[in-house]
Nucleic acid binder design. Structure first.
Lengths: 344, 344
DNA sequence: TAGCTGTCCGAAAGGCGTTTCGAAAGTTTT
DNA sequence: AAAACTTTCGAAACGCCTTTCGGACAGCTA
């Protein structure tokens, strides 16, 4: 009597053995045929492949990994709740070796050390080929230690242990890039509003800002305004600065959120952007940058490239490349929109 | 001569066999001891556990999965580039069975059918226990088909095939919840601005809006304004409405972005929020909702619960629970902030 | 002491592929 | 037709763990 029960998931997934039987060859031959190895006659190969596709054979990656020692999977350990940093990095890692080649296990520790440990164990238990640790700021974070059985790369937030491999955005270069752009569009009376002074990102970007100003022979109109990474701070700081120096013509902001706040206050003050004042943000967070009026020029940290590089590093280490610790800096790039140059 | 070479990753990870040898028992006993099974004397168990921790044994999940048929891993297939929807869902899925119990492979298809297929193959190859498909809007998306060897659950965007299991936010309820809240804070002259009329989310929320109004015996001040899901549209539509009906006292917006735009235009028109006009958004996207002036009351889709439920569904199906197709709707909740009620 | 019950442990069979190495078959050379 | 290669295939070991099932031994009863 035919089985008429509704869909049941996979009585059993077809195995290589099934394929071999159907094709009338041994498992060894079937394996070679499926994997495109040379020592199998073309005719046999076709027979095997036909059998494989007939029963819908998919090799069992678990068994493959068990024997090859590679899972082609990396773990991404993060505390970036927003996903602002981690998603571009994930996409980069996925792409590092072509589409679908490597997969990523994403674990969100939510800033909790204990949960991070659970996730770490789960990743090792699943035998990931390596781990990318993504911090939520560019401040160094504590190392996972040197004892892990797989390569670890720290991305965005470098590790505090110089023996580890870290990849981080070059915030100094970004700050400089931002101010150079404002100067290149004719601004001279420039200020810098940024976030929490306890963040390395704030300090580094400010440093780059000063460098760029000095290189052009300019002096900032006022001290750097440190505060928080919020629109509210952007609004308040902008108001203060405009009152003190009504002739400011350029704002370098430490984040897109701060820049959004600046734009709002400039509106309130009746300044038009970019004609009277140019504003540049940082992070190139699309949803913020492209929804403002005018759209926001910003510095992009090229996180996708950073993710790609992180994945490459892991597999290099696995292939025996010498591991040199330290932090590699990634160059940011400028994304120009309407807040610094009037659209045609 | 001792090997003094620098850290090399895992000469070889210790296996259960190593543990057994060290403890002087068989692999079978070692396995039972490690897994806390009963048929092993307490003394022996302690000896085995000591050996295990001495050499830092971690069971090889690949081998475990090979034999148990469960990987305790689910695939999350998405095209949500922002991560706005997928990350809460991921966190929910991770948590469904306690921390670190199940892991999630996140694949971003970037809206590309071919890439989606690659990822799908990769997931099946890794023998995930199930797949959660996350769309980027609440419109039905095409089914992955009925032929997959693992349970599939569609989240956020339901499948267009009623045989599939889908979980989606109840947008009608959300629209109604929003308008009921405005009414409860004394608003009567209410309008609705929302996004692209081609989106089911826009239509459903608008329907809920009308329901809520009718239930209170009110009539909307104007037609529903359909447009796009952007701040720009929020600004423009608000301006139009205010010109037509200067006495509007409540805006129900179809997204937080639209609401942000509305707030901005209300400022331009000199209206104060929430005193003169109350504004409510949708999605409860923190970065937008908590950075506006005033902060934005919004409707939260409780996506984390949706993710948790999706994971539960997968393992239920795996355990043989009958799979009933169709879409289960998730109730949204109201998050009150300053744009509808003056903070104390 | 013989017989019985219960506790604890281990041999071995899976689970699914990959790889090595030797054997068989086919082809070419003298 | 015999010898010397090539080419093609398969048996078996291996990777690491779980689970079943039978055996050994201790302790108990009659």
């Amino acid at each position: 009597m035919a089985d008429t029960s509704p869909r049941v998931h996979a009585s059993r997934a077809p195995t290589l053995n099934d394929v071999a039987q159907l094709a009338g060859v041994s498992m060894a031959t079937a394996s070679k045929a499926v994997n495109g190895r040379a020592e199998v006659a073309e005719k046999t190969r076709r027979r095997v492949l036909a059998a494989a596709s007939e029963i819908g054979f998919t090799p069992n990656g678990l068994a493959q990994s068990l024997v090859t020692g590679r899972t082609k999977t990396v773990g991404l350990l993060t505390s970036d709740l927003e996903g602002r940093f981690v998603l571009p990095i994930l996409m980069g890692a996925e792409d590092a070796f072509g589409s679908g080649e490597i997969s990523v296990l994403l674990c969100d520790a939510r800033g909790d050390r204990i949960r991070e440990n659970y996730h770490l164990k789960a990743l090792l238990n699943r035998r990931v080929d390596g781990i990318i640790v993504v911090g939520r700021s560019t401040d160094p974070r504590n190392s996972l230690g040197q004892q892990l059985p797989v390569p670890v790369v720290y991305a965005y937030a470098p590790s505090d242990d110089p023996r580890d491999q870290s990849l981080a955005p070059d915030n100094r270069a970004g700050g400089r890039l931002a101010v150079e752009h404002l100067i290149s569009v004719g601004r001279r009376r420039i200020v810098h509003i940024t976030g929490d002074p306890g963040y390395a990102a704030a300090q580094d970007r400010a440093e780059g800002f000063h460098e760029g100003m000095a290189a052009a022979g300019l002096t900032p109109v006022d001290e750097v305004m440190f505060g928080s990474w919020t629109e509210g701070w952007g609004r308040d700081a902008t108001a203060v600065l405009l009152q003190r120096h009504p002739d400011i013509d350029g704002f370098v902001c430490g984040s897109d959120q701060i820049a959004r706040g600046a734009l709002e206050t400039l509106r309130d003050f009746g300044r038009s952007v970019p004609e009277d004042v140019a504003v540049i943000g940082y992070d190139n967070w699309e949803v913020l940058a492209t929804n403002s009026r005018p759209e926001l020029t910003s510095i992009d940290c090229t996180l996708q490239g950073l993710g790609r590089q992180a994945a490459k590093r892991i597999f290099e280490a696995l292939d025996g490349a010498p591991v040199s610790g330290g932090t590699e800096l990634f160059q940011p790039k400028l994304v120009i929109r309407g807040s610094t140059i009037a659209s045609r």
